[in-house]
């Protein structure tokens, strides 16, 4: 595991010194700050149930962009850039297992993604203790919501690593990931809307299980953690990291 840890540290450092990462953070918080202030004002004006606030903040455009665009941007360089510059050759000829490289890179992307969300905890603090609101936040749903977000992000980042290992074109890698994110989030919904699934039990169940957006609204955001969904995301993460490892190993196999 030494290789994974060393790769993780180096990759996390690369994220922390990359201007792109900071640009994402700045844009995200500018947008999110504006949206949250609007949302809070809306709640205050209309005397809505304060406990719904974390749930509703899920639906903000900034959340959507964080899930749709950011995984692709964060992971596009993982392997594509190494392939483009040729540093993949020194990396893969070092005495480190491919699986360690994959875990290190994905771990760094996941932790950095977590760091991007970290300041949003401050918003909870403001909501809980702010003088202008008398909210009594339920932290259970908040915790479940964060967990769900990280599981989903972990899956998208794992796919991003895989896409990045397929090409030496970083833009193509980002695009593939964004298409996947869009597909995962929107496709079940679109299919269910355009095909008559009422009579087809299996299709309906499948689409139901795959509908990430609805799962979030009905489970994680309400503080409900469904083991089958946790397994779904963890399995997806493992699956795509495995594919990434295979993609790296393929150059060693005749």
């Amino acid at each position: 595991m030494n290789g994974a840890w060393v790769t993780f540290k180096k990759e996390l450092f690369a994220y922390l010194v990359s201007p792109v990462s900071w640009l994402i953070a700045v844009l995200f918080y500018l947008m999110r700050g504006y949206e949250l202030s609007r949302l809070v004002a809306h709640f205050a004006d209309n005397r809505l149930d304060q406990e719904l606030l974390p749930t509703l903040s899920y639906g903000l455009t900034s959340t959507f962009l964080m899930v749709m665009l950011v995984p692709g941007i964060l992971t596009m360089r993982c392997f594509a850039e190494e392939r483009r510059t040729g540093s993949i050759e020194t990396l893969l000829t070092a005495p480190v297992r491919d699986v360690d490289v994959v875990l290190g890179k994905w771990g760094a992307a996941a932790v950095f993604y977590g760091l991007l969300w970290l300041p949003s905890v401050l918003v909870l603090h403001v909501l809980e203790y702010g003088w202008f609101l008398d909210a009594d936040l339920a932290f259970g749903p908040v915790f479940a919501a964060y967990l769900g977000m990280f599981l989903l992000a972990g899956l998208l980042l794992a796919f991003g690593c895989f896409a990045s290992s397929l090409t030496d074109n970083v833009l193509l890698a980002a695009l593939l990931t964004i298409i996947f994110c869009f597909g995962l989030l929107r496709l079940p919904n679109l299919v269910a809307g355009s095909v008559d699934v009422a009579g087809n039990y299996y299709l309906r169940e499948l689409l139901d299980k795959l509908d990430v957006m609805r799962n979030f609204a009905e489970w994680f955001a309400r503080g409900l953690i469904d083991t089958s969904q946790v397994v779904f995301y963890l399995g997806g993460i493992g699956f795509f990291l495995f594919l990434t490892g295979i993609s790296l190993q393929s150059r060693r196999i005749a």
Binding site: V6, V17, E82, G86, I88, E89, T90, T93, A94
Partner: peptide, 26 residues
């Protein structure tokens, strides 16, 4: 191994790069 084109991680300093490689090589 020294490849023909020495690839670069532009964000690292020379000493940092070598420390990283040393760690990677155990």
């Amino acid at each position: 191994y020294l490849p023909q084109e020495v690839p670069i991680y532009p964000e690292l300093r020379v000493v940092e790069y070598l420390r990283y490689r040393a760690a990677l090589k155990g």
